[in-house]
């Protein structure tokens, strides 16, 4: 039995997708990346072996994501941009623009004829990323899931800073002023959506929009983003695995 595995070592989570020869997903899982990409990649190998898919000549691995070089048993590394493009295309089944809100960066990728044709990434900054949401959720003393839950019943307060550190102090002063947590949470989500929409408008988007990355199942975020972009944003339960799926598809190759 031949297996084709895509491993996406992100800054927050590591995603793994295994395909068989028919491009059917036969295994997928996610692990926290933790402090060592090397350790995570070893852990993934152990997990695959336990699942009866050991790293051997019957298995071809392509690694992607920030920690891609740490996967020493990968045949090749491919950037997360190409992988998200291919994975997103496979999930949606047609050309589209992919918005990936990652832990550390956000990117917009245009897919034409099944191939990523252009992309734009945010610059040197965590505003508009998963990291931003994580920090703000922390500050509000809730988990990420609760943050969206709270936000959905709030009325967005303005959080205008471009910088996470300054935005955090805006949040602190909202807290100090006794504002409702729901309203602050809504402001936090609104701020991320604005940043992401800004990136989208600088990139000439084409076709339908697909959200990938760890936030792909946040209904509230998806609806805010749809409203801001003025177009339906699609998502998929496998959206967080888009990068790993793309890597696995590249491992599988044409045929």
């Amino acid at each position: 039995m031949k297996y084709y595995t895509g491993i996406d070592i992100g800054s927050t989570a590591s995603k793994v997708v295994v395909l068989d020869d028919e491009k059917k997903i036969v295994n997928h899982f996610v692990l926290p990346t933790g402090w060592s990409s090397k350790e995570t990649s070893a852990e993934i190998a152990r997990r695959l072996e336990a699942d009866g898919m050991p790293i051997n000549e019957e298995m071809k691995v392509i690694a992607t994501g920030y920690g891609r070089v740490a996967v020493d048993y990968a045949a090749k590394t491919v950037t997360e941009i190409t992988c998200h493009g291919k994975g997103g295309y496979a999930l949606l089944g047609r050309d589209c623009s992919i918005v990936d809100i990652g832990g550390q960066d956000t990117k917009v990728i245009t897919v034409e004829n099944g191939m990523p044709s252009s992309f734009l990434m945010n610059d040197k900054c965590s505003a508009g990323t998963g990291k931003f949401l994580e920090i703000m959720a922390n500050r509000l003393g809730v988990g990420l899931g609760d943050l969206f839950e709270m936000a959905s019943s709030g009325k967005a307060l303005a959080i205008s800073s471009m910088c996470t550190v300054f935005a955090e102090s805006e949040v602190i002063s909202h807290i100090g002023n006794g504002e409702h947590r729901e309203d602050i949470a809504a402001g936090v989500v609104d701020s991320v959506v604005n940043k992401v929409a800004g990136l989208c408008s600088r990139h000439s988007m084409k076709g339908d929009v697909l959200l990938t990355g760890g936030l792909c199942e946040c209904e509230y975020l998806i609806s805010c983003l749809s409203r801001k972009l003025g177009t339906k944003v699609y998502s998929d339960p496998m959206g967080r695995f888009a990068g790993a799926l793309g890597a696995a598809l590249i491992a599988r190759g044409k045929k």
């Binding site: 491919v78 950037t79 997360e80 941009i81 190409t82 990523p116 044709s117 252009s118 992309f119 990434m121």
Partner: peptide, 10 residues
């Protein structure tokens, strides 16, 4: 580096 590599991939 990531951008350059992705650009070459496209």
């Amino acid at each position: 580096n990531t951008r350059l590599a992705a650009f070459l991939e496209t």
